Simulated assay, not measured.
Amino acid sequence: MPFPSLQLILVDNCPNLRKLPFNAESAKSLKAIVGDPDWWDKLEWDDEATKLAFTTKFNQLYSHSQEDD
């Protein structure tokens, strides 16, 4: 699905979200995807091109409990 104006995706505490409704073209306007690395590692991708396009946009979400450690 194309989302030409989408710039940021924040995923927090959504372990059942396994697939994003995007293709490699959808990553062009996107600046960042923020989420838990464990969630990111479990995502399912239609193809490697899409995975690669979005991997460069991924940033780890930090929780307050992680900052306190």
Results as ranks from 00 to 15, higher is better:
residue 1 M to H: 07
residue 2 P to W: 01
residue 2 P to N: 14
residue 3 F to S: 04
residue 3 F to G: 02
residue 4 P to D: 08
residue 5 S to R: 13
residue 7 Q to I: 03
residue 8 L to W: 10
residue 11 V to M: 12
residue 11 V to D: 04
residue 13 N to T: 09
residue 13 N to C: 10
residue 14 C to N: 13
residue 15 P to F: 04
residue 16 N to R: 10
residue 17 L to F: 08
residue 19 K to P: 03
residue 20 L to M: 11
residue 20 L to R: 05
residue 20 L to V: 02
residue 21 P to K: 07
residue 21 P to Y: 04
residue 24 A to T: 11
residue 25 E to W: 03
residue 27 A to I: 14
residue 27 A to E: 08
residue 28 K to M: 10
residue 29 S to F: 05
residue 29 S to Q: 14
residue 32 A to W: 12
residue 32 A to F: 14
residue 32 A to P: 00
residue 33 I to D: 05
residue 34 V to E: 11
residue 35 G to E: 11
residue 35 G to A: 13
residue 36 D to G: 05
residue 37 P to V: 10
residue 38 D to H: 13
residue 40 W to H: 13
residue 40 W to G: 12
residue 41 D to K: 14
residue 42 K to F: 05
residue 43 L to G: 08
residue 43 L to H: 05
residue 46 D to S: 13
residue 46 D to R: 09
residue 47 D to I: 09
residue 47 D to Q: 10
residue 48 E to T: 13
residue 48 E to F: 03
residue 48 E to K: 13
residue 48 E to W: 05
residue 49 A to Y: 03
residue 50 T to N: 06
residue 51 K to D: 01
residue 51 K to Y: 00
residue 52 L to H: 08
residue 52 L to G: 00
residue 53 A to M: 06
residue 54 F to G: 05
residue 54 F to L: 05
residue 54 F to W: 01
residue 55 T to G: 07
residue 55 T to N: 10
residue 56 T to P: 00
residue 58 F to T: 02
residue 62 Y to V: 03
residue 62 Y to N: 04
residue 64 H to V: 12
residue 65 S to C: 01
residue 65 S to G: 01
residue 67 E to T: 01
residue 68 D to I: 06
residue 69 D to H: 02
